[in-house]
């Protein structure tokens, strides 16, 4: 019974990690660097939604959920703004570095710098403490024998699935989606085919930011916000992205689920103290035995 519950919790954590890991994969594949600032986009998304919730309130609980349509609107606005924020960071820092032809690793340095600044601006504005979107109490539903989930958690799983399907269709059929995949394969070839590289990069940032914000709001719903919420997930995001193989959407999603499961199942065996070290263990094993990831092709 404990096992079934851990698996359910693992899938929930995994879904949130997967949403964040998609952006990390975009970074590694399309922007060609490990964006250590990505976790801060999760945090910013969560806090921006908090601003709207502060104005409009979380809404009257609808159905079994702890919030109403206002929360959904807040999530959409936060996704939009975080997408813009990601693009703004690119304009201010990364694009300049790309233009000067800096060492590719300089971008990673700069990402760490940006992350530090973004995280501490959150501390400056909202303080060190925790915040909640809503203090509404919820009753867990028994979805399967021995497995309990909150209605909010079921909502998160459903919405994640919908987002992933929509994203898959977007990447497969839309012009920008195809251009993004072309950039991931070969930037110079993409440029030769007339793809506007800067425009693709812009859309990549906006999309990554929006996905990160959604993951951040989900994190905030289960159950709280704090300035380190994104940062503490950073290693899991990288582990998920690399485990799945950075090239594919499915990779990031499966990677996210596996990392989420590994974290939650490890608690049963080695206690909760080392939970956050599990992504690192997964990462080391992948890098040793299958660095291209589960779905990646050998280069």
């Amino acid at each position: 019974m404990m096992l079934a519950q851990s698996i359910a919790d693992g899938i929930l954590t995994g879904a949130i990690i997967a949403l964040g890991a998609i952006g990390v994969s975009f970074g590694l594949q399309i922007l060609k660097f490990a964006n250590f600032a990505h976790s801060e986009l999760l945090t910013w998304g969560a806090y921006l939604a908090l601003v709207f919730v502060a104005f409009a309130g979380p809404g009257t609980p609808t159905a079994e959920l702890s919030f109403g349509w206002q929360m959904m609107a807040a999530m959409a606005l936060a996704a939009l703004l975080t997408g813009c924020l990601a693009w703004l960071v690119d304009l201010l820092i990364f694009r300049r570095l790309r233009r000067t032809g800096a060492h590719p690793m300089s971008l990673v340095f700069a990402a760490f710098g940006a992350a530090l600044i973004m995280r501490h601006v959150v501390v400056m504005i909202w303080g060190h403490g925790t915040h909640f979107y809503t203090r509404e109490l919820q009753i867990a539903l028994e979805v399967l024998p021995g497995v309990r989930m909150l209605p909010d958690q079921i909502f998160i799983l459903g919405l994640t699935l919908a987002i992933v399907v929509a994203l898959h269709l977007y990447l497969t059929y839309s012009r920008t989606g195809i251009a993004m995949r072309a950039m991931a394969e070969s930037p110079s070839l993409a440029r030769a085919c007339g793809i506007e590289v800067e425009s693709v990069i812009r859309w990549t940032w906006i999309l990554s930011g929006a996905l990160a914000a959604t993951a951040g709001v989900f994190l905030g719903l289960t159950p709280q916000l704090h300035p380190e919420m994104g940062f503490s997930l950073l290693l899991a995001l990288f582990a998920a992205s690399i485990l799945g193989g950075t090239g594919s959407l499915a990779g990031a999603v499966v990677g996210g689920l596996l990392v989420g499961l590994a974290e939650n199942l490890s608690v049963l065996f080695i206690g909760s103290g080392y939970k956050t070290a599990m992504p690192f263990l997964v990462l080391l094993l992948v890098l040793f035995f299958r660095p291209q990831g589960l779905f990646g092709e050998k280069t």
Binding site: L28, F33, A34, F36, P104, M105, V108, L234, L235, F238, A239, I242, G273, Y274, T276, A277, P279, F280, L281, L283, L284, L287, P291
Partner: peptide, 17 residues
């Protein structure tokens, strides 16, 4: 190169735990 960055970041986190 950035995989080394990620892995070393991981070891620091783990050591702290």
């Amino acid at each position: 190169g950035d995989y080394l960055a990620i892995a070393t970041f991981g070891i620091a986190t783990t050591i702290q735990l």
